[in-house]
Amino acid sequence: MKRLLLAGSLALSGCASGDLQRFEKALAANDSATLALGQWCAVRGIAQPPEIRALADRAASNPPSPAIRASLGVSASEPVAYRHVRLACGKTVLSVAHNWYVPALLTPEMNHVLESTDKPFGKVVALLGFKRERLASKRGRMAECPEGTVLSHRALLHVSSGEAISLVVECYTRANLSRAG
């Protein structure tokens, strides 16, 4: 009986590892985590329609550290906004994200949408044509991520001029490795 349980456990962890590799590739193929999660949600059948919503915690506050300001290339006096969200497809939370961004580099309309709606950052700023620079990736949780995180990313989003508009820490949940049904 123990051998059977061990064999089943090993097979399951191998399957999860393969799913995690596929998930990592899906994320790497996109500059927008929102776009990647929407595609992943559709492929995995997590929810219909496979639309990503950013469930924003409007009460969250996390002033940027000097290191975050340095990464964004902003002075100590320049405003940096913070947005803490759970990205969900249907009722399934796929990611918890911490996002520090430079409001001065966004349009007034973009800032208004980010402050007042649950629209994902990637969708809101898509017209800026940003590119992602991954700073760190870790299987499991980074310090900023909750327990149960299966994959963590830290990244900068840059516009074509090279300016960083956002530093994001993304904490991907175990739900990304589950199959629908």
Rank of each mutant, 00 (worst) to 15 (best):
K131I: 03
R58A: 13
T149W: 03
L4I: 14
T34Y: 03
R44C: 11
A47Q: 07
V93G: 06
I46G: 02
L135C: 03
L6G: 02
R3G: 12
L72H: 05
Q48D: 09
L135D: 09
L157I: 03
K91S: 13
S75F: 08
R154V: 13
D31W: 05
S178L: 14
T149H: 10
S160P: 13
G73P: 08
S13T: 14
S161Y: 10
N62Y: 10
S13C: 14
A7G: 07
A7Y: 14
E144A: 11
G8H: 09
R83F: 00
P120C: 00
L6V: 13
L12M: 10
R22I: 05
Y101N: 00
I52F: 05
E115W: 12
E109P: 00
P49S: 03
G162F: 01
G140C: 09
G73Y: 04
V159N: 02
L35K: 15
K91H: 11
S9H: 09
L37N: 06
E109K: 10
F130H: 09
V85F: 02
A42R: 10
A56F: 04
L12W: 15
R86A: 11
P103G: 01
L157P: 02
E170R: 04
P79I: 02
C171N: 12
S137T: 13
L37M: 11
S61R: 13
Y172H: 11
R86I: 02
W40M: 08
A104R: 12
A47H: 11
R69P: 03
A47E: 12
C171G: 05
